[in-house]
Design a protein around this nucleic acid. Sequence first.
DNA 1: GTCTATAGCCAGATAGAC
DNA 2: GTCTATCTGGCTATAGAC
Lengths: 203, 203
Amino acid sequence: MTEEQKTPEINILNAAKEIFERKGMAAARMQEIADEAGINKAMLHYYYRSKQLLFEAVFKSAFSMLAPQLNEIINADTSIFEKIRNFSSNYISFVIKHPYLPNFIIQELNRNPDFVKKLVAEKNFPNISKFKQQVNEKVADGIIKPIKAEQLFINIISLNIFPFIGALLLTGFINVNEEAYKQLMEERKTEVADFIINAIKLK
Amino acid sequence: MTEEQKTPEINILNAAKEIFERKGMAAARMQEIADEAGINKAMLHYYYRSKQLLFEAVFKSAFSMLAPQLNEIINADTSIFEKIRNFSSNYISFVIKHPYLPNFIIQELNRNPDFVKKLVAEKNFPNISKFKQQVNEKVADGIIKPIKAEQLFINIISLNIFPFIGALLLTGFINVNEEAYKQLMEERKTEVADFIINAIKLK
DNA sequence: GTCTATAGCCAGATAGAC
DNA sequence: GTCTATCTGGCTATAGAC
């Protein structure tokens, strides 16, 4: 069906995502969201009561799209190298489709640190203990070089997420246009995993 | 001298940095900046005319603190491995002292993409061509594994910057307190360079 | 449920006394 | 140069007709 049959709630939520993710909570305007949704400003309040509540709905929805992606690296039932390859490839593909999403999450977490405590308390953050154990085993077995699982985790996330968050900064330095930068991101679907595996593999 | 002899302009600029970097342009309030500076709101306008102009002064000042740090990796007159070691160590030390700065820069660039074009045009971005040449040489000489200089550059920046921008997200996953996370960042002053060098060094 | 009109508040900016 | 008081515009939120 080309004609989407969506409820007003969903329609508003999608419009709000669009605007909030691009502008952030503080700079977003309810009028803009209404325009994006093709409805009246009053409707936003009718369905979501306030800007704050609408924002929270968007944030939760966005976070629940990102978290499972990150979860994959932690609790998949595959070898450590495969996890790294799958995650990098899948995650980069995902973010190419949702370029503003990671920036939005991180931005709003930074503006509102209490969110994190709440999300942790609600078990919205997968625990990395399984990944940690796996890394420690491989280190002990002499498969990978000695490295703290936490540092490896930080490296994997950094290499996959930052190039999107810092895209504008990086294009400024590298001095390429948007098209060429996209090409670099495509390459990273395999490049990043190769880089990480080279860094940790013994022999 | 313990009593700082600073002009009102500098005093305001410092206060504005503090607030803008933590809250971003849109969420920052002139009243808050005035309070932080210990002066009246009207003074801000007397010295900087408008919020927008004050913001631009802050952004330029912040960017000019960050850019030279990044410049170092590109145009230092040392071996590629030393560059990576120096940069990682220096940059992480720097950001530990200015934790909100990279996030602020990236955030405001993302909200205002035209800034980038302006900054590039004003030559505020160092060109990476020297770094590129150096990487290509080392690849040709069989010192490092084949890798595009652009990808290596992205990796270096990502590994050094993201852990600060995404600190809240990462602490959520790793499930450590602020103190333990700081300790991880301290370790990264050498860990990051080791990781990168392991990834690219040929045997 | 959906709209128009408007209340009410808040923040940037300025007027004007000192 | 520095302050208090105030204007003005814009934005969230709601009242109320349909």
